[in-house]
Amino acid sequence: MTNTTTWARVKSPWVLHFNSGACNGCDIEIVALLTPKYDVERFGVKLEPSPRHADVLLVTGCVTQQCAERLKRIYDQMPQPKFVVAIGACACSGGVFDGNYNVVGGVDKVIPVTAYIPGCPPRPEAILDGVVKLLNALNPPKQKKQKQLEPPKETKPVVSEPEVIVPSQEAKPVIEETKTNVKQ
């Protein structure tokens, strides 16, 4: 049963894209992923409109003051199990905008991040590679070795290739905020 569930989760990652203050570069590359040249539907990836439907949250851009709270709320609205992928140098660390007055920093300052995909912007192939690596990390053989890693709060990105950290697969207790409506 667990194997079937894991198989289904690996084969059917529905993603939600949130731009937390990006320059459009990474966002356009994510949309390009859906198009004929890259076609992520091959891997069962679907871009979903509502956080309620998503398994993987793709965040692009440094987190601005206005977006920080929104980002957290969107993360809370997603059902367990959920993963966060920070796409692009800005999402990984704040990038070129780190230290500006309206910028909080990287995505991991606000929500736990599972995988980092650096680049400005990362090529669509790199994003694809990162998402596939993240999902393959869920597979049972690796699961045995898993040391119950909590989603890291302050891990810094590795520069060369997407880093994947597998969070606990156990569903966490639903926090109260999860129950607010998708309103805004």
Binding site: T5, A8, K11, S12, W14, E41, R42, G44, D55, P81
Partner: peptide, 27 residues
């Protein structure tokens, strides 16, 4: 190309979607 990796030619894609949704947290 469309669904490709879940089963031969991605034929199990709808099944994978279904199982995944059934095992997700229900809010």
């Amino acid at each position: 190309v469309g669904p490709l990796v879940a089963g031969p030619a991605g034929i199990l894609q709808p099944l994978a979607d279904l199982i995944k949704l059934l095992t997700k947290e229900d809010i």
